[in-house]
Every structure is written in C-alpha cells, then in structure tokens.
C-alpha cells in the first residue's frame, strides 16, 4: 500500500510521547525512495498520456495523491521533532543532556543552535539595562519565590546571585530563592523541606 512507511514514522513518534526517539533515517529514506518510484512511474505514464493514451490518467492521479500524502507525513514527522526539541530547550536549558543529543540528527542540531541564539537574543532585548530576563524560569507563576531547604552535607560558603553569602553547614535550615536551590538540590547538597 502506498504511504505505509510514512504513517509508520508518525506512529513511532506518537508512541514515544515523553522523549525524543532517535531520528529514523532508514524510515525517511524508504519513504523518499517510494516517492521517487512513484514519481518516475507517474512521469512515464504522464508522458504517454500526453501522447494520447488517456486510460492512464486515473492511475497518475492516485499516485499523485500518494506522493502528496508521503510528503505531508514527512513534514509532520520533521516538524513535530523540531517542536519537541524546542520544548526540551525550555525544559533543560541551552545544553541538552547527552541522551537526547544522541537522538538528534545533524540538521536538527543546527536548528537547535539557531533556536538558542534567537531565544537568547530575544531574552536580552526585553530585559532592562544589563539584565536579561530568563523566560525559561518559572513558566507557571510560583507560589513562593523562596523555598525552605535543609542542608544535608557540609558544603561551606555559597554565594547567591545577589551577592549574599550563605554558609551551608550540615543540618542547618535555610530559606533561599527557589532558582538558586534547584541545582544544589539536584546535586544532593540540599533537601527541600515543606
């Protein structure tokens, strides 16, 4: 059946909802091959149709529809992958984790870099003075800008963005800006307490 491969590509993307599956180069190539074959046959039949054999016109029409469909499937596949990459940019920041990086192909990587650049340029343009507003933070309005954390390892001095020095001593409790705690919590230095 025509356009089977293209639908398979989309199904594959649909099944992996939470992550970006590796770029299916093989699948894309097969679709392209199918399209080339369809196109060649169409060209042959079209030329004979021009010669006067009118019975080929319906088959040319059907093949053309299949071509269009294949094209749309490929476009959808590529577009949705890019959407996901954009989403990852907002989620993970400007550097993608290694496992995601391994799953994107070269043109996609190029796109990612360009997207990064334009996002950064935009964020720079909307901030006041030398500050730039990080749009990727707090996508939902946070309930509180500060969270309470407990220090679970002996870390020592930590300088916050506004220049305050916090001494993270084991078993001390702190109320710190959420933004600055996130990394330390991920590193296992702090623990969020409600």
């Amino acid at each position: 059946m025509f356009a089977q491969k293209g639908v398979e590509l989309i199904q594959e993307l649909e099944r992996a909802k939470d992550f970006l599956p590796p770029f299916n180069e093989d699948g894309v190539r097969q679709v392209l091959e199918e399209m080339r074959a369809l196109f060649e046959e169409n060209q042959r039949d079209a030329s004979s149709a021009v010669a006067g054999e009118s019975e080929y016109i319906t088959s040319v029409h059907i093949r053309h529809c299949a071509l269009e469909r294949n094209k749309r499937c490929l476009m959808a596949y590529l577009y949705n992958r890019l959407e996901r990459i954009k989403e990852h940019r907002w989620h993970f920041g400007s550097v993608l984790p290694a496992d995601i990086k391994a799953n994107i192909c070269e043109p996609e990587a190029q796109f990612f870099i360009k997207y990064n650049k334009s996002l950064a340029a935009y964020m720079k343009s909307i901030g006041e003075g030398s500050y730039s507003l990080d749009l990727t933070q707090n996508l939902k309005p946070p309930k509180n800008l500060y969270i309470q954390v407990k220090c679970i390892t002996e870390f020592g001095e930590f300088e916050t963005e506004d220049g305050d020095i916090v001494v993270l001593k084991k078993n001390s409790l702190h109320l710190l800006p959420r933004v600055q705690c996130e990394l330390l919590i991920a590193q296992g230095i702090l623990e969020h307490v409600s």
Partner: peptide, 16 residues
C-alpha cells in the same frame, strides 16, 4: 518565626 519569614520572603538560615 519561620512561618512569618516565609510570608514576607525574608531569607534566613537556622542553626540549632
């Protein structure tokens, strides 16, 4: 005190 400081976003460190 923790509750009050949280309400007013006063950053603190508590050491027992």
């Amino acid at each position: 005190l923790q509750y009050l400081l949280l309400c007013d976003s006063i950053s603190y460190s508590i050491i027992p």
